[in-house]
Amino acid sequence: MAQPSVVVLDYGSGNLRSAVRAVERAGASVELTGDLDAAMAADGLLVPGVGAFEACMRGLRAIRGERIIGRRLAGGRPVLGICVGMQILFEHGVEHGVDTEGCGEWPGVVERLQAPVVPHMGWNTVEVPVGSSLFAGVAQERFYFVHSYGVRRWELVTNDRTTAPLVTWASHGGDRFVAAVENGPLAATQFHPEKSGDAGAQLLRNWVRSLKAA
């Protein structure tokens, strides 16, 4: 059986080679590109991100990345966001008094963590909801975080036609924030699975395997 194809979206956000290698090891054929057609055609799209919310959104819009994400999701095509690549999926990011519009796929504001020590850097446990497929086999493991901002409050109203996302939480210095979300074809992690050892590798394998069934 052919390997699932994954595009790691290149929009100028940091060193992407570690993400490429990690997804390759998870069993996918990976291309690093900002090409719209390639990103649309792949079985899975991985949206990385490091640095400031505003800079990432500027880079994403420069290649029409928000349209790529929206079009894939409209067709039920899988997308995985990592770190700031998760944050930009929310409605807004507020950094240093600057409010930047995100992709708006989920409600919520990315804001500075209210903890005694920021950034939150290092290994941490997560609170995984029942029914998670992304965390299958690793719900009790630790993952590697590097961030100063996160989604600290999020309430999603659903109706009979809407399935509530599975939201994974974590805490740092007494402050709770969203650590991951699974929402149909759209999933994301605040932590870096590619830097999270065996647990992160298993999480990426879980995602890559899901592409075969998508």
Rank of each mutant, 00 (worst) to 15 (best):
A201L: 01
F143G: 08
L89C: 11
V8A: 01
Q140F: 00
V47A: 05
H120Y: 13
A2T: 12
R64M: 06
S196Y: 08
R67E: 15
V178N: 11
V79G: 10
H96L: 13
V138R: 10
S148F: 11
R21W: 05
A42S: 14
T100L: 03
V20K: 03
C83N: 11
T168A: 04
T162I: 08
A136I: 00
E155G: 10
V6M: 05
W123L: 07
R209E: 14
L166F: 03
F90C: 06
G70H: 13
T158E: 02
A199T: 00
A170L: 07
V47R: 10
A139N: 02
G65A: 04
L45Q: 05
G75W: 03
S133N: 10
G102E: 06
T100Q: 09
V47I: 15
F135P: 07
L80K: 09
S5V: 00
P185H: 12
V30D: 01
L166Q: 13
A38I: 01
A179R: 12
R77F: 04
D160T: 06
G197F: 00
F177S: 11
N206F: 11
G44D: 12
V94E: 15
R112S: 04
L80F: 15
L9G: 06
P185N: 12
A38S: 14
L113K: 01
G85P: 05
E155M: 03
A139F: 07
A42M: 08
G27T: 03
S133G: 12
R153N: 14
D35C: 11
R152L: 06
